[in-house]
Measured scan of single mutants.
Amino acid sequence: DEIHIHFNGVTIEFRGLTEEAKKALEEAIKRGASEEELKELARRLIK
């Protein structure tokens, strides 16, 4: 299970995320999180 985020022309790929983690990332994107914020969020979620 993986998710691809297209962000300002950059694709960020995450693997092994739970549904909750995906929802958290989607919410962050909707509120306009920066690419760095998304990566940091993903790091926290994957652990």
Rank of each mutant, 00 (worst) to 15 (best):
F14D: 02
E19F: 10
E19V: 11
H4L: 13
V10I: 12
R44S: 12
E40D: 07
E26Q: 09
E20T: 11
L38Y: 01
L45M: 05
H6F: 09
A33P: 01
F7Y: 10
T18F: 05
L45Q: 01
K23E: 11
E13A: 11
L25H: 00
T11G: 05
K22I: 13
E13Y: 12
I46P: 01
K23L: 11
R43V: 13
L25R: 00
G32N: 03
K23G: 07
T11M: 09
A33I: 12
I12V: 10
A33H: 02
A21G: 15
L45V: 04
A42E: 02
D1Q: 12
E37F: 05
E36N: 08
K23Y: 12
D1Y: 14
R31M: 14
L38P: 00
K23C: 04
E2H: 14
L38K: 00
E13Q: 11
I5L: 12
A42T: 03
I3M: 10
G16L: 06
E35T: 11
E26H: 08
E26M: 11
T18Y: 04
R44M: 13
F7C: 04
I29V: 10
S34M: 02
E40A: 08
H4F: 10
L38C: 03
F14M: 06
E37M: 04
F7W: 07
A24R: 07
L25Q: 00
E40N: 04
E26D: 10
F7I: 13
H6M: 11
K23A: 14
L41W: 01
A28S: 03
I46W: 05
A24V: 15
K22C: 03
V10S: 08
R31H: 09
L41F: 03
L38Q: 00
A28F: 05
K22Q: 08
G32Y: 02
E35I: 15
L17P: 01
R15K: 13
E36R: 06
R15T: 13
L17V: 07
H6S: 13
E20W: 08
A42G: 02
I46T: 04
G9V: 03
S34V: 02
L17C: 02
A24T: 14
G16A: 07
D1E: 09
E2L: 13
A28G: 01
I29P: 00
E26C: 14
E26V: 09
R44P: 00
T18Q: 06
L38A: 01
A33C: 06
E40M: 02
E37W: 08
E2I: 15
S34K: 04
H6R: 04
L38R: 00
E36L: 06
S34E: 05
L25D: 00
F14T: 06
T18M: 03
R15N: 12
E40I: 04
K30I: 09
K30E: 13
K39N: 07
I5V: 10
E19G: 12
